[in-house]
Each structure stands twice: as C-alpha cells, then as structure tokens.
Design a protein around this nucleic acid. Structure first.
Lengths: 138, 138
DNA sequence: CTCCGTGCAAATGGTTTGCATCTTA
DNA sequence: TAAGATGCAAACCATTTGCACGGAG
C-alpha cells in the first residue's frame, strides 16, 4: 500500500494524517517478518528521531481497528504484528523465534472446510505451526 | 489421570511428590475451561491455604516440560493453560473469553494433510478460532 | 542429612495511561 | 481554534527471580 492509498484509508476511518503514522504504517504493512513493537520503533525512529513507543502502540492499535493488522500474543515474549489478515499459517521457529507466513487458496479452502464442520460462524482464526527452522537445525 | 498415575509420572521425570503439586496437577489436568494461573490458585488454595502463586507457576512449568500441558499466550490477558496436548481447535469467544476445545480424528487428519503440503517436520501447533459464543450472542 | 520445593517479597518488562504540548483540519 | 495526536514519565500487572525456611527422599 502506497502513501496515497494510506492517506485515503486514514481519512475514510476518521484518523488524521501525521508523518509518524504514515511512516509506521508504510513500514509495518510492508514487513514480512512479523516485527515486535520495539522493532517498529527501532526502524521508524531512524527517520523520526523524536518518535515515542506510545505513538507506535497507538498506531498499531489503529491498524488493528481498521482491520489491516493482527497481533500475535505469546508467553513471555513481546507480541508480534502481522499484516497478513486473511487465512494463513504462521510457521514459527521455536528456537530463534522467526515467523514466516504460509498463505494459499488451498490452505484457505481446506481450513474453512474443517471449521464449517464444527461451527457455523467463525469471525477469525490464528493458525500457528511450530518448527525448528533450517538456520537453527545446522 | 488419578493420584497414583500422577505420582508415577512425577517419579519417572525426577520430580518430588508434594501435596501442592498433586493438588494443582489433579485439578488442572481435569479442567476443561482453560484456566488462568490465577484461577488455578483460587481453586487449589481452598484445600491448601498457604499456597503461593510461585508454586502454581512452578508446577504449570513442570507440566509443560513433561508435555502434559500447553500454554496459550494472549494480548493483554493472562495466559490460559490447556491439558489437551494433541491436535485440536481452541474455540475462543472474543467477548467473554471462554475457550472450549474441539478435538476429533477428522480434524487431526485434515490438519496434518494441510501441514504436510507446506513443510516436512512440524513439532506442534496452535489452532484458534474466534467466535461470539451463544451466551454472548443473546 | 542433603537437596529440592515452597512461599514471601522484590524485581522485571512489555504495554497502558495521564497529562501537557504540539499539530492537523 | 477546536479536537485529536504526540511524547514523556509514571503506573500496571502477569510473571519471574532471590532467598531463607521447611519437607521429601
């Protein structure tokens, strides 16, 4: 999503356009490694040295409300933020914590089939698979 | 799992048998509503008034190590403990937080099929489905 | 008798909140 | 210029840690 599209989304949802919001959203929505709030801060504060964690959390919360981001909570580890909002699998390395997404029509179809067998109306899901990734296996 | 079986499991894994451990494990392993550490404490401290949260956390950690319990971390909510360790779906009400398990051979088979398509060696999984439960729908 | 487990109290750390200042519309 | 956003500092709270005492083996 580019800057213009982001601005439209902000306006449609009655959020003001600020440089911090733009920078945070541009980076998080393009991220592929499920960053922590801290990592968002580290990266975006390079362009916005006065940035605060408060603004990072506020903005991530805004994206969740708009429906462009989901948050994965863990045990004794900071939350990870995931811009993939449709049905997908989070493949999580138990050793280094890296997460990569697996998304496909086939996964979506098969998952919806499983869910439809047990309930009528699901409003979302979180599918995690634990592995030891190739880098950690060596 | 009854008291005798528990004692065997403790001994096999080099953990000492204490009244607190027995009480906590008996209750958690029989629970069906994915209690929080606090709820475990509330319940077990009725029989063991001197019980501490430290012991609750220690014992839950022990059960995780033995492989009889898994922990579900969330965003801004205490962790929930789940004695169902095989493949199953956690159906979570987004309103009241209640969690119930769905477990079946069919779910297990279908899920393993999905996973085998994308990776060779998974060492575990967490499958959550979000709903608004019947009680909250009214 | 030795070591592990328990319970208290204090520390931890990611996240939230209160508030004064600044910015957007 | 009014309402909302930012940034700082302080609060929060589930969980972990340090340590002295007590109980299991």
């Amino acid at each position: 999503m580019n800057k213009k599209q982001l601005i439209s989304v902000f306006r449609e949802n009655d959020y003001r356009v600020t440089p911090q919001r733009l920078a945070i959203c541009e980076w998080v929505l393009a991220s592929e490694d499920h960053p922590t709030a801290e990592q968002v801060f580290e990266h975006v504060s390079k362009e916005h040295p006065a940035l605060s964690m408060t603004t990072v959390y506020n903005t991530l919360e805004m994206l969740k409300k708009i429906g462009l981001l989901s948050e994965l909570g863990f045990n004794m580890q900071p939350a990870r933020f995931d811009p993939t909002t449709s049905v997908h699998i989070n493949v999580i390395c138990q050793q280094c914590g890296k997460i990569r997404d697996f998304k496909s029509e086939s996964i979506k179809t098969q998952w919806e089939k499983i869910v439809s067998e047990i309930l009528a109306d699901s409003i979302g899901q979180r599918l995690d698979v634990y592995v030891i990734c190739d880098d950690c296996k060596v």
